[in-house]
Nucleic acid binder design. Structure first.
Lengths: 323, 323
DNA sequence: TTGTATGCGTTATCAC
DNA sequence: GTGATAACGCATACAA
């Protein structure tokens, strides 16, 4: 491995001069600097990250943690983060699995963006307490070293319910996510609040877990008890898609017998027939904001928690209730 | 930051003893070891990765490089890699973007798995030449430090064509992937070979790029020139899905007027109607094998290139040609 | 402008 | 068994 020492020897200068030259310090002559750079290139010199990190106590890399790699969902979010970090000369690594938690306390990364339920809040708090900077996308934790960038779930859920009511529906199911999902619980709470405002509506909840299968099961249940046109608010699009899949093998049609609205506006939802009504937000922006917040945290500039706004996308899966 | 020095001071021993104890060396007494471990825990000691990496010249982390994060496709592959690495006490980071290329030469990772067209073959060769260990999933490069784990594209494409022919089809389109895609070119070559074996078949190629949009455009073209029942081999499922989407707004039906077969057996393909015929392979296994190969490379045990086998999944999108 | 010297936190080679 | 001590490769305060 070629180090600055080798360059120094070959150039007939000291290692500090080499270091200065490589880091573009103005302290070194144009001439010597050019010579050193030339030799460095000739020797295919590449700095050693470990040594630099050890000395500088920073890595210029941030880590994004995901519960798993399966989400159809993460692409744009990660892209948003990557773009934002690149602009600021930070690198990105994506991690998953208990094993990778150590990257933060071991200082392999300068900060973390969390969308990962395998972190307990206690663990995150502990890291924050040790001085590590963290942006959280999937829960609320108050700490000076922690910032959260959360979806406006309440607005989204309210939008969905209001839309359903506007269309004249009087029977409403909500298919929930897992109980340990912050997003699901926020949406569900908002739904319950909204439902209270509309006492004429027959409201019931079907427990789900954000998977297609949960959507299929929910559809099955709704059909089992079918007595009138019903509306279903699936707390994410994944489950809404599952519902479509189930209905495809029945006499019941989405947007006719069972009116469906989702949450997330996944790319696949554009291709359903009828097009799925859903709640949209910019995943790219979500990522970009999270990255910006984290960099501010690292630079010790004061930050407020951020909220990502949502909008209603009207498809044809929620139609007028014809009596 | 608490280091072994702090522990040593508090325990009244030297730093080397602390290091031994922390690394479970048998050279140190049960007693002192226990005391040291206790103090380490009390002080919330966590080793510094940079220092350890610098000294040991290894990180026990491997990097997976993806062209981008958008693939619906990568989940299982990454899961396979992660499981395999975890079993061997290696960590995983997922990277994308030019910016992250440096992680390999800078020795932030002990090796790389490449499924990333932003690496030129020259660049990979250069890293291999520097001694870095690489497993490549998307092209062929011969070098002692490089191993490839490739799909059996030829078998898959042949399977697809034979299936189409068996069903009595006489008009065949193939929708290709991008020209810089190794997988696409291998599949295409196999298709051309197979087509030669069946001179009675009217064969033509439509250039695509592995996106849904390409599938839509291809469907449009096929319908434009429609004169008889046709079969289309989309060189990946993504394009096949695009074809379905386009057909949905026409008078033509998949599996009736236009018979479709894909490649990849994506999860979404299970939900199409009619179910998409396609070529399947285990993405998880692909990842697992890639990881195993890389670890062997790192341990300097000799390895052969590996091949991932494929099978035909019969859906209803390729039916008998009724004349 | 350049060189010397020190330390970042570990591991590992010696002595003792 | 334990303790000095020297690396690992780099950055930097200070001297020259």
């Amino acid at each position: 491995m070629v180090s600055i020492k080798d360059i120094a020897k070959k150039a007939g200068v000291s290692i500090s001069t080499v270091s200065y030259a490589l880091n573009g310090s103005p302290k070194v002559t144009e001439e010597t600097s050019a010579k050193i750079l030339a030799i460095a290139k000739e020797l295919n010199y590449i700095p050693n990250a470990a040594a630099r990190n050890l000395k500088k106590r920073e890595t210029k890399v941030i880590g994004v943690y995901l519960t798993d790699f399966s989400g159809a969902f993460y692409g744009q979010l990660l892209q948003g983060i990557l773009e934002s970090l690149s602009r600021n000369d930070y690198g990105l690594i994506v991690c998953s699995g208990e094993h990778s938690h150590r990257y933060l306390p071991e200082r392999m990364i300068d900060g973390a963006i969390i969308l990962d339920s395998t972190f307990s809040s206690g663990e995150l708090l502990m890291y924050a307490e040790r001085g590590h900077k963290i942006v959280i996308l999937d829960r609320q934790i108050e700490h000076p070293n922690i910032n959260q960038v959360l979806l406006d779930n309440k607005a989204g859920a309210t939008l969905a319910i209001d839309h359903i009511v506007e269309k004249g529906h009087t029977k409403l199911y909500v298919v929930t996510g897992p109980e340990d999902s912050f997003d699901s619980m926020q949406r569900l709470n908002a739904v319950r609040q909204a439902a209270q405002r509309y006492p004429h509506i027959e409201y019931s909840e079907i427990p789900g877990d954000f998977t297609k299968e949960a959507g299929e099961r929910a559809a099955e249940q709704i059909i089992d008890e079918y007595d009138q046109i019903a509306a279903a608010f699936c707390l994410n699009d994944e489950m809404a898609i599952g519902m479509y899949n189930y209905l495809a093998n029945t006499e019941y049609n989405a947007g006719e017998h069972i009116h469906i609205i989702g949450f997330d506006n996944l790319e696949v939802s554009h291709h359903t027939k009828p097009r799925l009504s859903t709640i949209d937000y910019s995943k790219r922006r979500w990522g970009a904001v999270a990255a910006e917040q984290l960099l501010k945290l690292i630079k010790d500039v004061p930050v407020e928690n951020e909220r990502i706004y949502v909008t209603l996308v009207e498809g044809e899966s929620i139609g007028e209730k014809k009596v």
